[in-house]
Design a binder for these strands. Sequence first.
DNA 1: AATTATTCAATTGTTGACAATCTTAAAAAT
DNA 2: ATTTTTAAGATTGTCAACAATTGAATAATT
Lengths: 230, 230
Amino acid sequence: MEPKLKKIADNVQKIMEIDRQLLRSDQAVDLIRDLISTGKLGPGDRVNEADIANMLGTSRGPVREAIRKLASTDLLVQEKNIGSKVFSPDKKFICELFDVREALESLAARLAAQLMSKQEKAHLIEALDFHEGLMKKPDFSSYQHGGADWDFHLLILEGARNQLVWRICGTELGDIFALLRAQHGTSRGQQALLEHRWIAAAVNNGNEDLAAALMAQHIRASRDNLLKKF
Amino acid sequence: MEPKLKKIADNVQKIMEIDRQLLRSDQAVDLIRDLISTGKLGPGDRVNEADIANMLGTSRGPVREAIRKLASTDLLVQEKNIGSKVFSPDKKFICELFDVREALESLAARLAAQLMSKQEKAHLIEALDFHEGLMKKPDFSSYQHGGADWDFHLLILEGARNQLVWRICGTELGDIFALLRAQHGTSRGQQALLEHRWIAAAVNNGNEDLAAALMAQHIRASRDNLLKKF
DNA sequence: AATTATTCAATTGTTGACAATCTTAAAAAT
DNA sequence: ATTTTTAAGATTGTCAACAATTGAATAATT
């Protein structure tokens, strides 16, 4: 047995802040998401209902609802009468994931180039400057770096003003991407930042075709980089 | 009040076949999906937990899990302490939906052109012939027509061999599309069939660029047609 | 008459217990 | 020693009851 969760269970409060206003089931969703995105739970790890319930001080009912929700987007995999595990992405799935990201995020970049406000565009540049500043520090971690990288993509998705793209790309695929990032550090450092700057420039100029093309290329490069580790 | 569900509740068995092998929560998912795709539940209609539970002869626990799952893809909308309703797509959402479908299904058409087997390609043509046959019958309903139309898109999605595109487009967006179809009959009859034939030809020839472009155009036309009704 | 309290019914949120199923490990048989 | 059987142990699936919240109808107040 592998009671990974039980070891964590004791000091939950120290692990993350939980919004007690939320429904128990939403608290459970947040907790499981956090456990995965911080690498405390990895691909194939069992997610025990009772353990999660104990961590939150609730019963299993809400936890089951949470697991059901996360399984509906394949972050967890549920088997009847057996339980649920964290999804294990293989090479093929990663190719599929990046194909979808390429299609949807280049759409998002195109929309962002059309729709982003002056303020948002300025904020985009600020975020890149901040990211660059982070990288110059001696103690910048791969984890932070991956976070800053993803933040850029979220800003583009936000600027696209498309709720559906946001949910699919930002939330659903984002969860799986967080899982990948927690396991393998999936950023290409300086080069990724450079490509982000090109994309931001195209978005700022309202050059939608270029923005879309650059985003597609960026995501393909990102995929190739990740596939090397498989 | 609007006890739409309670009237249905009595004769559930006659409404649809339910697979009793499945988990109760999956049975509930199937039931709710069916109620929506057949138009028995429409946008804004309340989905009462106890009613669904009564229809299936179960308790509310599994029903809550089902609602949670369907709400995670926005087919249902959940409000804390108030309940859940069927999602009400507005004009803006429909634009978003079709933008996403255009991006993902043209990707699917491209992949299908590369990957579909001879058998699958033949089956594609058969499906179109069958569809054409249906249309010539005097009693072909708009409902059947919409089903046959969607079947073609599913065949393409299947041929793309991309599990993620399948889940997002075929399942998630498919659910919402089924809701739209049940409310407004969303097919353009003869013209849609013709465009399907063009796409199928491109796929059969392995002409991926053309297949993708034709699919994108087809979906844009489909969107414009639907938007007229809003 | 209009507005505010107050009660009551309906619905959701949560729980703890029980039943069904699977897993593991010990015991029995070959 | 290897396999099979059996029996506990742990985990999931389901339920029925209770608590909390909301919505609506009634009563009370101005």
